[in-house]
Amino acid sequence: MYYTYAITGLILLISFIINKEKTIKAIKIATVKFKKIFPTFITMLIFVSIILFLFPDELISNYLGNNRKYISVLLASFFGSITLMPGFVAFPLCGLLLSKGIPYMVLSAFTTTLMMVGIITFPIEKEYFGVKVTVIRNVISFFIALIVAVITGIFFGEIFQ
């Protein structure tokens, strides 16, 4: 946490030394932009807190661990789409699932949708780019994730077993 603040502080300081007025203007822009999107962030946080409660890690692990891997791929991409996890939480979880014998293609579907598809971030994306574009981008991302999962399955020899 501290180093992002340290770097930002340093850049801000350099900017301030070079040009005081511009830096103050930059901070004003930042504040205005942040204020505009802040209520939407709070809405999103509320959704996140409820979704993570309804779909905890253990539940996701249980569902992905069933024997029908094609169903698991679909479930994985569903979970990945509706939840939101930072990478430092998601990858250790996936590493654990891998050691439990869950196929690579399932985890690939999960991580790729987790990163690319954001149903929870929908309110924020919509604020910037509008409903239509947000829907299109998320649908495309979902299919990209499925393609990635299938190709992962082929390369790890999981698909025709």
């Binding site: 850049i11 511009k22 830096t23 203007k25 901070i27 930042a30 932009k33």
Partner: peptide
């Protein structure tokens, strides 16, 4: 957001 602000002015 601060970096975005700096980006916009610089």
């Amino acid at each position: 957001f601060i970096l975005i602000g700096l980006f916009e002015v610089w």
